[in-house]
Design a protein around this nucleic acid. Structure first.
Length: 492
RNA sequence: GGCGCAUUCGUCUAGCGGCCCAGGACACCGCCCUCUCAAGGCGGAGAUCGCGGGUUCGAAUCCCGCAUGCGCUACCA
């Protein structure tokens, strides 16, 4: 059997981590077995539609490298891929069900439904539609339809028996039919609900496997009954473990960012995001943590999808991102830095940034950052012309604590040592400064701290000698002078 | 309230009857390296496998209860 899977987002906002995780698993299954990955837009809820979310969704897929074989922009033989353009198919299906008495029109008002629910809850009964309109005769229903003007179509669930869901990750799950109420399949605005549209389209698009989040498991028996009533063959279902926030609840806005675009903007790499998401509910074996896209494809198997909820652990994501940052080829890393620097540096810095300079800076910071955004704070001094800001306390460091004159002397002798240096490179600077430390009878670290802060404005910075070499002699001397000047006037 | 799913170190997980007094990764702690910060190397601590009963020569692994958590219970998906 050829594998056809789909990602079926509804365009109600920026794509969520949980959604994209589902997309990823579907994509992996397709790529692993040479199947097709389809994107279908489930825009059946007119009221929740958010402008631009389809574009955002496609962007997220592209960013993660999840290419689709059919869907928006790609086309395909099973289109259209927007449910809002497939309304006739849902009506055809609903008509068939109506004709077969597997569905009926319902004119109960939202008010009646709300009251019903309230009363049921008060009596501690399971809430659900009571089947009022189902009990009516066809003539009565026709009458009410006319009188009401608007109606919905409800599916007539079997009133007895049970529905067995065969789930690829959970095994058999049993549901009692009488406990499932007659759900709406066609809304009064003529649009289908998820249940109908999903079933009709999955069948029409010959979807072989439905990998979706666990929250869908309870509605699967309804879907199965729909397949049966429509004489369609159901796909293989696999319900993916839910993604939890740090507090153990379902991941949602209150846990912080849930949109993948946010993580992209925060400087996470797509390869890290992909790897991280793949491990939310799946594992290759007992020890493999880092997997490339290719390894994920080669290793993915439904049998290795877990059943237990996976917590979205930001620390782990960040650690993985650091790993992927370090793994980048130096030139590639340098170029990836560019957008973040050009975005984060003050306007006084001339754009575009010089590529050679980026490539020189790259190696100094590559193993020091976990997220690309961090590069701005770590390297701004390479680009700034204006005076740096820092505290005199930091300038003196541990070695010259409460000893401004000592620090001053260190800076002045450093200047005197570096200014006339015949060769300006990291090696020459290092031997000069180490010799100086020895001459001043200072621990190297104690001497280097004031120099570092003077040159970079920071207590934690890239390696000193390479940094000075890159900054250049002129600016190094300038900054040493500026620091020496400041030591005379205490500021904190 | 009902129905469903789940329950192994703080986190992600490995484990599908003996190889496990439970393995890996992240985080944490210590040491080494070291000009700061990282990275890297080495080591450490951390889970009586939710609880209680069974089945079995033997259970984290199978069965039954209970507890807890989560999900669903819309003319939302």
């Amino acid at each position: 059997m050829s594998i056809r899977v789909r990602y079926a987002p509804s365009p109600t906002g920026e794509p969520h981590v949980g959604n994209l995780r589902s997309a990823l698993f579907n994509w992996l299954l397709a790529r692993r077995h040479g199947g097709r990955f389809i994107v279908r837009i489930e825009d059946t809820d007119q009221s929740r539609k958010v402008e631009g979310s389809v574009a955002q969704t496609l962007d997220a897929l592209r960013w993660l490298g999840l290419d689709w074989d059919e869907g928006p922009e790609a086309g395909g033989a099973f289109g259209p891929y927007y449910q809002s353009q497939r309304l006739d198919r849902y009506h055809e299906a609903a008509d068939r069900l109506l004709a077969a008495c597997a569905a009926y029109t319902c004119t109960c008002t939202p008010q009646r439904l709300a009251d019903l629910r309230k009363a049921q809850q008060k009596r501690k009964q399971p809430p659900g539609y009571d089947g009022r309109c189902r009990k009516l005769s066809p003539e009565e229903r026709a009458q009410e339809r006319e009188a009401a003007g608007a109606h919905v179509v409800r599916f007539a669930m079997p009133e007895a028996g049970e529905t067995l869901v065969e789930d690829a990750v959970r095994g058999q799950v049993r549901f009692e039919n009488p406990l499932l109420d007659d759900f709406v399949i066609l809304k009064s605005d003529g649009f289908p609900t998820y249940h109908l549209a999903n079933v009709v389209d999955d069948a029409a698009m010959e979807i072989s496997h439905v990998l979706r989040a666990e929250e869908w498991l309870p509605s699967t028996p309804r879907h199965l009954q729909l397949y049966r009533a429509l004489a369609l063959r159901p796909p293989i279902f696999a319900h993916l473990p839910i993604i939890l926030g740090a507090d153990g609840g379902k991941l949602s806005k209150r846990h912080g960012a849930t949109s993948v675009a946010h993580y992209r903007a925060e400087g996470y790499l797509p390869e890290a995001m992909l790897n991280f998401m793949a491990l939310l509910g799946w594992s290759l074996d007992d020890k493999t943590t880092y997997l490339s896209r290719e390894e994920l494809v080669a290793g993915f198997a439904l049998k290795r999808v877990g059943k237990t909820g996976a917590t979205f652990d930001l620390d782990r994501l960040e650690a993985m991102n650091g790993h992927y940052v370090r793994a980048l080829a130096p030139d590639q890393f340098a170029e990836r830095l560019r957008p973040w620097l050009e975005d984060g540096l003050p306007p006084s810095v001339v754009r575009p940034l010089d590529g050679a300079r980026l490539r020189a800076i790259g190696p100094l910071v590559q193993e020091r950052i976990k997220r690309l955004t961090e590069v701005v704070d770590l390297t701004d001094f390479f680009f700034l012309e204006e005076p740096l800001s820092y505290r005199n306390k930091d300038l003196m460091g541990k070695g010259f604590r409460d000893n401004p004159s000592g620090a001053l002397h260190a800076l002045e002798t450093t200047r005197a040592t570096l200014a006339p240096l015949s060769t300006w490179d990291a090696g020459a600077i290092e031997s000069a400064l180490r010799a100086l430390a020895e001459r001043l009878e200072l621990k190297p670290g104690h001497l280097f701290t004031p120099i570092r802060v003077a040159a970079t404005g920071k207590t934690a910075a890239p390696p000193l000698f390479e940094t000075l070499a890159l900054i250049g002699r002129t600016q190094t001397v300038q900054r040493l002078d500026a620091a020496a000047g400041r030591l005379a006037r205490p500021d904190d």
